[in-house]
Amino acid sequence: MKQSMKALLAAAAVSGLMSGATALASVTSSPSGTAPMLNAGSASFTSSLLAHVHKHSCKGKNNCKGQGGCKSGDNGCKGKNSCKGKGGCATDGSKMPG
């Protein structure tokens, strides 16, 4: 790749970085930049941010193939480690009420 082309592409990437950072700031802050419009951690914050992302990444071009939108794969917290006993009834037959 020609050096000039490479520099052009890097500049495009940095420009995107800056516009993304600016857009993020606009979602999280008031125009004055002092008071947050949306509380981080709230559902509205996340949905607003994702709406921005989708609008920004898919507008007017055909090169966002596969951009079907983000999907939450979350399944809540995990707490596997515990000190409870695990058992069944192989030795004894049915479980009796405590």
Binding site: L9, G16, L17, S19, A23, L24, L49, H56, K61
Partner: peptide, 17 residues
């Protein structure tokens, strides 16, 4: 198409932190 692709991608990723 590459400059606009990169600009959009990096903006997107920056917004997602």
């Amino acid at each position: 198409a590459r400059p606009s692709f990169l600009q959009a991608a990096f903006a997107n990723w920056a917004m997602l932190g």
